[in-house]
């Protein structure tokens, strides 16, 4: 609780927290949607925002507000899958490479570094084309997860490398503690803050990539996400035709999400960094 109170002292944390709560409520509302998001022409087309259709309707005959609730939910699911799965990979790779060292470390870090240097975007385009048939939220999330762990695994590895040299590691070994227990009990608490802040970063990275892939048409356009909404809006040239409510809804929502996640991560990592924390709580 103390931690939360301190965090809320930062206006960036407070704002981003409120925005994320708002977005979470929106995603939750999708369960009460009166319409099936995959069906077209359930409402009149191209209506301006009004009392009946809060954010208007689109050229597919779908209600934009309810469509947006699904889009937010699905984008969050993708980013959560990507974030959580890549965290698991990053922790495993980072801990094993850091603790074992030697050739295991070299091989794992070679794979990681390769992922860092190759242009990932091209790979995603290629993979998305190959996986077209089975593309859904889970496959997209997993695909992003498989390529989004390398940098964070490196961070965790370097942390474990320095923890391994601390005397308390030896104390634990001399107390008869096994390797697995040692890593989980002694090292995990130190890496938790790092894991948490990289999770947020990875999530916003995943949302961004999903939007990019959807705009160039490499996502399953039947599943509403922030990216596919944008794709449809662009496809029907909503800007040209002055249907601003259609294009603006996903743009504003994704902007809000990016800024909120970014501020959240900055604020938390500043809080976790002892040097900046002193500045913040003030002298």
């Amino acid at each position: 609780m103390k931690v939360l109170r301190d965090l809320f002292r930062d206006y960036r944390f407070t704002i981003s927290f409120i925005v994320l709560v708002f977005i979470a409520i929106m995603a939750f509302l999708s369960f009460f949607s009166p319409y099936d998001p995959t069906l077209w022409n359930v409402v009149p087309r191209d209506m301006k925002p009004a009392a009946e259709y809060v954010l208007g309707t689109d050229s597919n005959g779908q209600d934009i507000f309810w469509q947006a609730t699904f889009a937010v939910r699905n984008s969050l699911i993708i980013s959560l899958i990507s974030g959580l799965v890549s965290r698991v990979i990053a922790i495993l790779v980072g801990m094993i490479a850091g603790y074992k060292g030697g050739n295991v470390d070299r091989v794992l870090m070679f794979i990681g570094d390769s992922l860092l240097v190759i242009p990932l975007f091209l790979i995603f385009v290629m993979l998305a084309m190959m996986l077209r048939e089975v593309m859904n939220l889970v496959t997209l999330g997993l695909m992003l997860a498989l390529f989004g762990w390398a940098w964070d695994a490196r961070l965790i590895r370097s942390m474990v490398l320095s923890l391994r040299e601390r005397d308390f590691t030896t104390t634990a070994i001399l107390s008869g503690t096994g390797t697995l227990k040692l890593v989980l009990k002694e090292y995990m608490p130190f890496t938790m803050p790092l894991i948490f802040s990289t999770l947020i970063n990875n999530m916003s990275w995943a949302i961004g990539l999903e939007i990019t892939l959807a705009i160039i048409g490499l996502a399953n356009l039947n599943i509403p996400t922030l990216g596919t909404m944008l794709n449809w809006a662009l496809f029907y040239q909503s800007i040209l035709l002055g249907r601003w409510w259609w294009i603006l809804t996903p743009v504003v929502l994704s902007l809000l999400m990016f800024i909120a996640l970014y501020w959240l991560s900055v604020s938390i990592s500043e809080y976790l960094d002892p040097r900046t924390r002193i500045q913040r709580v003030g002298a």
């Binding site: 109170r5 301190d6 002193i278 709580v281 003030g282 002298a283």
Partner: peptide
């Protein structure tokens, strides 16, 4: 040193 630690 005057420190403000968690409000105290």
């Amino acid at each position: 040193y005057v420190l403000d630690m968690q409000g105290t």
